[in-house]
């Protein structure tokens, strides 16, 4: 068992605390650099200010499995096992939550999970219409009707095979 020295407490924006193994938390670059800054201090609480508890929980779940799988499959096969877990991990996340998660992961600077979430969002919107994408990302259309019609006309081939469910 790891001693308490190997633990760190991550505090969400609501003030909820999560006790995490250092091996897991060190995948979050921001946590790593904060801890390096205050090396020697007994206080091992890192506030993640802007990150909501539900995202902290997701990120911890991802890296906990990442670390475990890496240890278990040292000899090989780690990548396939990780892919399997990632698929199952993404299934439990609501499509709208992916955006909040990518913001949190970007803030915490966790490259592996950032890659996974960006790919998941890309897959989700790949066959979607322009209208769906505006709504999904909360983007205001700043084209005039004429401008938009012209852009669409230029690339008509890019607009077939779109589905919006």
């Amino acid at each position: 068992m790891a001693s308490t020295d190997d633990k760190v407490i991550l505090k969400s924006s609501e003030g909820e605390c999560f006790e995490v193994d250092m091996a897991v938390a060190s995948h979050l670059q921001i946590v790593k650099s904060v801890l390096e800054d205050c090396e020697g201090s007994s206080d091992k609480v890192v506030s993640l200010f802007i990150v909501e508890a539900k995202y902290v929980a997701m990120i911890i779940e991802y890296y906990k499995n990442y670390v475990e799988l890496k240890e278990k499959h040292e000899e090989g096969g780690f990548e396939e096992k990780l892919k399997e877990f990632e698929k199952q991990f993404l299934e439990q996340i609501d499509k709208k939550e992916l955006k909040g998660l990518v913001m949190a992961v970007n803030y915490l600077n966790a490259p592996a999970l950032f890659d996974v979430v960006c790919t998941a969002i890309a897959k989700h919107i790949e066959n979607k219409s322009v209208e769906y994408v505006r709504e999904y990302f909360g983007i205001v259309n700043d084209f005039t009707a004429e401008e938009e019609a012209q852009i669409r006309e230029e690339h008509r081939w890019a607009y077939d095979g779109v589905n919006d469910d």
């Binding site: 919107i125 790949e126 322009v130 505006r134 205001v140 259309n141 700043d142 084209f143 938009e148 690339h155």
Partner: peptide, 10 residues
């Protein structure tokens, strides 16, 4: 094809 379509988002 997708990114070409999304040029008309904004």
């Amino acid at each position: 094809k997708t990114v070409t379509r999304f040029q008309s988002v904004s």
